[in-house]
Simulated scan of single mutants.
Amino acid sequence: MTPDHSARPEGRSSPAAPGLDRRSFLGAGACGAAVPLLGAASAAAQPAVAAAPDVRRPLDVKLRINGQDHRLALDSRTTLLDVLREEVGLTGTKKGCDQGQCGACTVLLDGTRVLSCLTLAVMAEGRAVTTIEGLARPDGSLHPMQQAFVDHDAFQCGYCTPGQILSAVACVQEGHAKDDAQIREYMSGNLCRCAAYPNIVAAINQAKSEMGA
């Protein structure tokens, strides 16, 4: 009987696939099948990420400025300074450095001086905002601090003057205007590039007595 040479021992390589036996083939197949399964499991394990809120969506904000209510639709990132100047049209509040360093944008928030360039408008909701336009008395006469700045020529170009006046009013109301040194210390956040500082100190000294300080 002639031997059948077509039969191959178990595990011998097939001529059609040199170097690959059955064990290697099955192992490669198992690994290949596991990759997509592991990927799917990993993806399923990832926590769901909530969609970030759209900060550009306008917010309905009610601001009380100089005794009048203003209802505005505002981007939540809008500063009080930009609202005053661009939305309400009160341009007396000046934009200087826009970084909170010069004091030109100073306004009063519930009687406390704040830098409106660093204050978000939404933070002022429910509070009283006073700008230079709202400082005069109801009869139209100037506030004692405004009049004192005029009397002592406490300005030159006038750009920083609204912020200087509002800061000076707060300085007196805070009880920080007892002498020249204290006035200079508590007014140091307001810069005057024209260097009218001696006149500003003199104006505050005049106004504090009229303000009952």
Results as ranks from 00 to 15, higher is better:
residue 206 Q to M: 03
residue 2 T to A: 13
residue 27 G to T: 13
residue 136 A to F: 07
residue 111 G to A: 06
residue 76 S to P: 15
residue 187 M to G: 06
residue 189 G to S: 06
residue 201 V to Y: 14
residue 49 V to K: 05
residue 72 L to F: 07
residue 185 E to A: 03
residue 170 A to M: 02
residue 66 N to H: 05
residue 152 H to L: 05
residue 113 R to Y: 09
residue 60 D to K: 10
residue 195 A to I: 15
residue 24 S to G: 14
residue 9 P to D: 07
residue 126 G to H: 02
residue 77 R to T: 13
residue 36 P to W: 05
residue 151 D to E: 14
residue 76 S to E: 15
residue 57 R to K: 15
residue 116 S to G: 08
residue 82 D to V: 00
residue 160 C to P: 02
residue 86 E to K: 00
residue 111 G to Y: 07
residue 88 V to Q: 00
residue 28 A to H: 14
residue 30 A to H: 09
residue 89 G to Q: 02
residue 54 D to M: 01
residue 59 L to I: 11
residue 91 T to P: 00
residue 45 A to N: 13
residue 118 L to Q: 12
residue 199 N to C: 11
residue 91 T to L: 02
residue 153 D to G: 13
residue 92 G to V: 04
residue 193 R to H: 10
residue 18 P to F: 15
residue 118 L to W: 03
residue 18 P to T: 15
residue 51 A to I: 02
residue 160 C to K: 04
residue 145 M to T: 05
residue 147 Q to K: 03
residue 201 V to R: 14
residue 144 P to M: 08
residue 204 I to T: 12
residue 6 S to F: 09
residue 171 C to D: 12
residue 16 A to S: 08
residue 151 D to S: 12
residue 107 V to G: 02
residue 132 I to C: 05
residue 130 T to K: 12
residue 32 G to Y: 09
residue 143 H to L: 10
residue 179 D to K: 00
residue 207 A to L: 10
residue 208 K to L: 06
residue 52 A to I: 06
residue 150 V to T: 07
residue 60 D to V: 09
residue 45 A to M: 14
residue 76 S to N: 15
residue 147 Q to H: 08
residue 84 L to W: 06
residue 79 T to W: 06
residue 193 R to G: 06
residue 199 N to P: 01
residue 7 A to D: 07
residue 98 D to P: 01
residue 174 E to I: 04
residue 49 V to R: 01
residue 18 P to Q: 11
residue 37 L to W: 09
residue 117 C to G: 07
residue 42 S to C: 15
residue 22 R to N: 10
residue 142 L to R: 09
residue 19 G to C: 10
residue 40 A to L: 15
residue 151 D to M: 07
residue 82 D to C: 00
residue 8 R to L: 13
residue 16 A to L: 10
residue 9 P to K: 10
residue 103 G to C: 03
residue 26 L to Q: 13
residue 66 N to S: 06
residue 151 D to R: 15
residue 64 R to C: 04
residue 62 K to Q: 06
residue 159 Y to A: 02
residue 57 R to E: 15
residue 150 V to G: 10
residue 51 A to N: 08
residue 9 P to Q: 12
residue 15 P to G: 04
residue 20 L to W: 12
residue 126 G to V: 03
residue 141 S to T: 14
residue 2 T to Q: 11
residue 37 L to P: 03
residue 175 G to E: 09
residue 27 G to V: 14
residue 69 D to F: 05
residue 95 K to Q: 12
residue 96 G to Q: 00
residue 114 V to G: 00
residue 195 A to Q: 12
residue 138 P to G: 08
residue 84 L to M: 04
residue 114 V to A: 01
residue 34 A to Q: 06
